[in-house]
Every structure is written in C-alpha cells, then in structure tokens.
C-alpha cells in the first residue's frame, strides 16, 4: 500500500506540482487549499503524512499543525512544512507548533522524496 499524503498549499501551481511529483513517485496524494480545507479533509483522508505550506489564507500552516496536534484524528502524523526560505525563525516557529520537519521550495522530486523518507515509512 502506498503512502497516503495530504498536501496543503494555497497556490494552485504548487498543488499541481505536488500532485504530479508525488504521484509519479508512487504516493497517494490528496490536495487541500488551506488549513481549514486540510483539517476538514483530515478524517476522511487519514494520511500517513501531511505536507503543508505555511503562508496560507483562512488558516495558515502553523494553525493547521497546532490543530492537528491538538486534535484526536491523527495527532502524531508526521507533518512536513514547505517553506520558501530556509529562514531559521520560520523553522523554529514550525517546530514549536509541532512540525516534524521541513522542505525548502523550490524542491525537486529527489529532495521531496528523500525528505519524506526521513520521517515516514516509504
């Protein structure tokens, strides 16, 4: 069974890129447009991993991570954040919110998959 990933990004381009890249890498991908959308889909998707953008409308990545960690649907699912910068402050905030790790944009398939492998059973 392939790993099921919930990928959350408000950018259509990014979503489509994640969908194509992750599907080609053999993952099962479900997309969401923002934190609220991701949370709404979470129970049905039951992902093995969440990939999320940080800067999003309605509910941003930090809010999403905190909500997932505080909830009881999948509080311990690995969550990787997608950041444009490798700014240490953002990473630290994400970590404190409960993120498992991060992926720096732009990413290629290799860096994406190898980072996923670090935190989930592939």
């Amino acid at each position: 069974m392939s790993l099921r990933i919930l990928a959350i990004d408000d950018s259509l381009t990014m979503r489509e890129m994640l969908r194509q890249t992750l599907t080609e890498a053999g993952f099962d991908v479900v997309l969401a447009e923002d934190g609220i959308d991701g949370l709404t889909q979470l129970p049905d998707v039951a992902p093995d991993l969440i990939l999320t953008d940080l800067n999003m409308p309605n509910m941003d990545g930090f809010g999403l991570i905190e909500a997932v960690r505080a909830g009881d649907v999948a509080p311990r699912v690995p969550i990787l954040v997608l950041t444009t910068e490798s700014a240490a402050t953002l990473k630290e905030r994400a970590r404190q919110a409960g993120a498992t790790g991060w992926i720096t944009k732009p990413f290629d398939e290799h860096s994406l998959v190898s980072t996923i492998r670090r935190v989930a059973a592939v």
Binding site: I36, T40, A46, V73, R76
Partner: peptide, 28 residues
C-alpha cells in the same frame, strides 16, 4: 506512536475541530 490512527478510530462525527469545519462550510 507515530502511526496515525485510521478512520475507524476516528469517526468523522468526532472530528476534533467542529468549529473549523463548520466555518469552512460557511465561508469556503
């Protein structure tokens, strides 16, 4: 403890963020 509980353990009715879901339905 990492493995995420699958759907059977977490019926949609007990979704942890009812408020969030509701607001998604109304404003999304």
């Amino acid at each position: 403890p990492v493995a995420a509980p699958k759907a059977p353990d977490a019926p949609a009715a007990t979704s942890p963020q009812p408020a969030a879901s509701a607001s998604a339905a109304s404003t999304g």
